[in-house]
């Protein structure tokens, strides 16, 4: 992709201090079939105490963006080929590996989808939680265990003191995800990246975990990046939403505005394609076709082969992120029509 047009930066809320600024990030994967362009010029901002939801389907580049920010990209085959990641004023991509490692875990932490595979099955959860303090803070074994119990209480695990020596498999899915959250919180990071944190959980447990995450974030005034494919999950908790498609940001907006009046046909398609409890219709408005292969992203607007309003312009010109309102941006040439139609 050639970066000919200037990409307007998605406006960020003024006021609270900006924690993370990602600018024009590019990530590629070298595969046997060719170069997969997983992230193509993504920019996003997170302020202190803000929740940014990054929404997209598989292959949209949302998880890769998170991995690049965390610095846990599999290299090779993955490679950051351009852009900047400013975190607390420092460009993470310019840091040496040791310096980045000191940022990871201590200043920013990550929560994964599959808590069972993210925890070591042969060590007790207390040991794994305490490890954070022993390694980063040089705490003694006893002290570390004490802190582990505190953390478990903080994420509302019942009978934390008696369960601290239990092993991961002895906990239920929801409890394990709480332990992952506790682990992420251990060193009081400023930014938490949660990659599909509730996807593997049941609805009733999902609600508990999301509520916990939102409470903790308020309490510590952390920045939170919530990566998800589920439009329902983010509706309640996010402040801002960034919608990704084929490695690009196609729309960014404050959460209410996005749901009220999507300014990109893809966002609109996603919203229309979920059956809603409160609206039983006969036929779902599905987005036709399939997401493109990252090896062969269509020229022009990446969404045009599936887009109901695509015109010849869309086949040729990649739309920039147009500013479409206060704090809103859309990468659609015809955003005005969409907004007018609402």
């Amino acid at each position: 992709m050639t970066q000919t047009q200037t990409q307007p930066v998605p406006p960020s809320p003024s006021g609270p201090e900006r924690l993370l600024e990602v600018r024009d990030l590019h990530v590629e994967f070298r595969t046997r079939e060719g170069v997969a362009k997983a992230v193509n010029g993504v920019s996003l901002d997170v302020a202190e105490g803000e929740t940014l939801a990054v929404l997209g389907e598989s292959g949209s580049g949302k998880s890769v963006t998170a991995q690049a920010v965390m610095g846990i990209l599999d290299t090779p085959p993955g490679r950051v080929t351009g852009g900047r990641i400013l975190f607390e004023g420092r460009d993470l991509l310019a840091l040496r590996e040791e310096e980045r490692r000191s940022v990871r875990g201590a200043r920013m932490a990550m929560i994964f989808q599959d808590a069972l595979s993210a925890l070591n099955p042969v060590l007790s959860v207390g040991y794994q939680l305490g490890e954070m303090f022993r390694v980063h803070r040089g705490s003694s074994r006893k002290e570390a265990r004490e802190r582990a119990v505190e953390l478990m209480e903080r994420v509302r695990i019942p009978a934390a003191r008696t369960r601290v020596d239990d092993y991961p498999h002895q906990f239920s899915g929801g409890m394990r995800q709480r332990i992952m959250i506790a682990m992420a919180l251990a060193l009081e990071p400023r930014l938490i990246i949660a990659d599909e944190p509730t996807t593997a959980l049941d609805v009733t447990v999902q609600a508990q975990v999301m509520e916990l995450l939102a409470d903790l974030q308020r309490e510590f005034r952390m920045g939170l990046i919530l990566i998800t494919h589920d439009l329902g999950v983010v509706a309640d908790v996010a402040d801002e939403i960034v919608v990704m498609y084929a490695g690009r940001v196609v729309e960014s907006a404050p959460v209410r505005e996005l749901y009220r009046a999507p300014a990109h046909p893809y966002t609109k398609g996603l919203l229309d394609s979920i059956p809603r409890l409160d609206q039983k219709g006969q036929q779902l408005d599905a987005v036709k076709g399939l997401p493109p292969s990252l090896l062969r992203i269509p020229p022009g607007c990446g969404f045009h082969p599936r887009c109901p309003v695509a015109r010849p312009l869309c086949h040729a010109d990649e739309p920039p992120l147009y500013e479409v309102g206060r704090g809103r941006a859309s990468a659609c040439h015809f955003w005005e029509e969409l907004l007018d139609a609402e």
Partner: peptide, 25 residues
């Protein structure tokens, strides 16, 4: 169960009663 279903509408949150269950199955 029904109250826990995430609804893709941020303004719906205020219009419904949410029952968050304790504990696990």
């Amino acid at each position: 169960l029904l109250s826990a279903v995430p609804v893709p509408d941020p303004s719906a949150g205020e219009r419904r009663t949410r029952i968050v269950l304790e504990g696990d199955v």
